[in-house]
Design a protein around this nucleic acid. Structure first.
Length: 187
DNA sequence: CTAATGATGAACT
DNA sequence: GTTCATCATTAGG
């Protein structure tokens, strides 16, 4: 965990790569739900596609906190997405968690997501938030409380490519995913 | 005050 | 491949 934190502090691109293979755990009242991180994207305040590009606002304030802070944002009128903040405090950057491979609490995830397909449980940023039962009230809190990371596995091969769902800086290769994993949101 | 925008997902064809 | 549901935040007047 210490080594990971060092990676997160050194920046969103390094952090996005380092997070792959880690297990994201949410301790809920009903028990543990968790999954391996298999897909991430890096965002930085110098990046036009980032929420932090136009500077600090009430919405993106969590991005300027210290590495390991959780940034949950609402978009498209109905979706929440989860980020892990990277870099130094005062610098607006974060890693978007885009997909998980479900590990624990799969029954609870299926109930929340209303699907019996394990593949469909968390193969998208808003899907994994729903599957894990993460609420917007978690925004600004630190890893290590309800939500934390545990060592998972070491990825064999990591693919680096362009990001999804953005209209600016579309050619920046800031998306990372684990090769040959069935639980990523797209190739 | 008003309007455009969006780091998406589900349901289509 | 396409459409659209749906609203908080933001920029602009």
């Amino acid at each position: 965990m210490d080594e990971l934190l060092l990676s997160l502090r050194s920046g969103s691109v390094v952090g996005a790569r380092a997070l792959l293979g880690w297990k994201l755990v949410h301790e809920t009242a009903a028990g543990r739900v968790s999954g391996y991180i298999v897909e991430t994207e890096a965002y930085d305040q110098t990046d036009p596609a980032s929420h932090s590009y136009k500077g600090l606002t009430k919405r993106n304030a969590a991005m300027y906190e210290t590495a390991g802070t959780i940034y949950v944002y609402f978009t498209y009128g109905m979706h929440y997405c989860l980020n892990i903040v990277t870099g130094a405090k005062g610098h607006g950057e974060a890693v978007l968690i885009r997909a998980l491979e479900p590990v624990e609490g799969i029954g609870a995830m299926m109930e929340r997501r209303q699907t019996i397909s394990k593949i469909q449980l968390a193969n998208g940023p808003a899907k994994l938030v729903q599957a894990l039962g993460i609420a917007s009230s978690q925004n600004g809190s630190l890893l290590g409380q309800k939500i934390h990371l545990e060592p998972g596995f070491i990825p064999e091969q990591i693919i680096q490519t362009t990001r999804i769902g953005i209209t600016k800086a579309q050619n920046q290769p800031y998306r990372f995913y684990i090769a040959d994993n069935s639980y990523i949101s797209a190739k």
